[in-house]
Design a protein around this nucleic acid. Structure first.
Lengths: 149, 149
DNA sequence: TTGACAACCACGAAATACCATAATATGATG
DNA sequence: CATCATATTATGGTATTTCGTGGTTGTCAA
């Protein structure tokens, strides 16, 4: 299952926030009932994924480190930065304060599906980013066509 | 299985609409009993596909490189906008209000098969679009002849 | 003792599951 | 061919559950 759609939820005073129901469903076949969060290296937002994907990433870097040492080093940064956060009974997690600060989130968190991963944005920051992206994508529209499987 | 044909169904006040039986059949071997909807990038309509297709798309664009911006922006556009909608017992889905508005659908929804995907149109909008397309096709008739490969 | 953090409880709004009926198609039978 | 019976599908309305949210209590460590 994939992380799809964009959902806005409130963060309370303690940093608690409901992970959208659909996102939780996307992890329900997973061993670890929760998500992995780490700060994005390309955008002002938090990135998230399942534990399963972390393990895949680990396997991949294991195999590739002979060839691209640079990338391997960068990827390994993630493992030191990643936090595993399990859902409470109502489906919430507590986002660490430093991540909230990094992403500039105030009050409301925007969960943005990206397939195998997702992101958590401040609403305003995301709108800014999305506007830029749309413009770029429109310029390169031919590459947007769905490719054959 | 493919989405074929054109079927018109009513949308009630809550946005509920029966997905045509043939369309449902096209997903019956799928794990997820429902469809994925997102707004078209090229037309005033809603586009739809199966979860299986989304997963294929995800696999195709997924590389474990966390630092390349290009692929990410494309993924973001598609996956952040997609909604997964499961059938109820009678085979209906609830189309989100913003998608209905985007496509300008009022009361009746036209399900238009496109093979691996389908579209949902407002009836009038579709007729308008179809008329334009026919005119264009007529103008460019010579280039429309079947080509040999 | 205090502060951080996790488990627990409770509630309203919104989503969805459930039930009943109408419409349509399919097929059998005289 | 006409009629009836049956099954499938579409549609409308109501009841129930889920989800997101806020607050409280309990626990452990500093």
């Amino acid at each position: 299952m994939l992380f799809l759609g964009t959902i806005e939820n409130k963060i309370d005073t303690k940093g608690r926030v409901s992970v959208p129901s659909d996102f939780r469903m996307a992890t329900k076949n997973d061993d670890f009932q929760g998500v992995i969060l780490y700060h994005s290296f390309t955008h002002k937002c938090i990135e998230g994924c399942t534990m399963q994907r972390m393990e895949q990433l680990s396997d991949a870097t294991d195999n590739l480190d002979l060839f691209s040492e640079e990338n391997e080093n960068l990827n390994s940064l993630i493992f030191s930065d990643a936090r595993q956060l399990s859902f409470d009974v109502t489906g919430r997690i507590v986002i660490p304060a430093d991540l909230i600060e990094f992403a500039g989130i105030k009050g409301n968190a925007l969960f943005v599906g990206r397939g195998k991963t997702f992101q958590i944005w401040d609403k305003d920051e995301f709108e800014k980013y999305q506007k830029e992206t749309r413009e770029k994508a429109f310029k390169n529209r031919p590459s947007l066509s769905f490719k054959k499987d």
